[in-house]
Amino acid sequence: MAPVTIRLHGAFSDFANGARRVDLDAATAGEALEALAVAHPSLRERLRDEHGVLRVHLSVFVNADDLASLDGDGTVLHDKDVVHIIPAVSGGGQ
């Protein structure tokens, strides 16, 4: 387990009653997101669908790297890593 910080940006801060920073211990990105959902239950269904898949218009970065380019939920976290929960700049289809 590593002490890490989660930064909530934009709408995802709104869904967590305005919280912008959550400090917690986690060994992997998946554990960090689960711990975040425990700390702020209102975020659980905003982050993942009912089958556990991360929502489409959500970007998760570990420091400066997109989780999608790392090992996904299995990405190993280290002391003082920062996990960013960011509304993706995407869409525009409607």
Binding site: G10, A11, F12, F15, S42, E45, R46, D49, E50, H51, R55, H57, L58, P87, A88, G91
Partner: peptide, 29 residues
């Protein structure tokens, strides 16, 4: 039906003045 955070149902018990988020309708595993 939000872009960010996905779809959700909101419930108000004061004719729309304040709202709480419901648990999502969900398809089974």
């Amino acid at each position: 039906n939000a872009t960010w955070g996905g779809p959700r149902i909101e419930v108000s018990h004061d004719l729309g003045r304040t709202w709480t988020i419901a648990a999502n309708p969900a398809f089974p595993a």
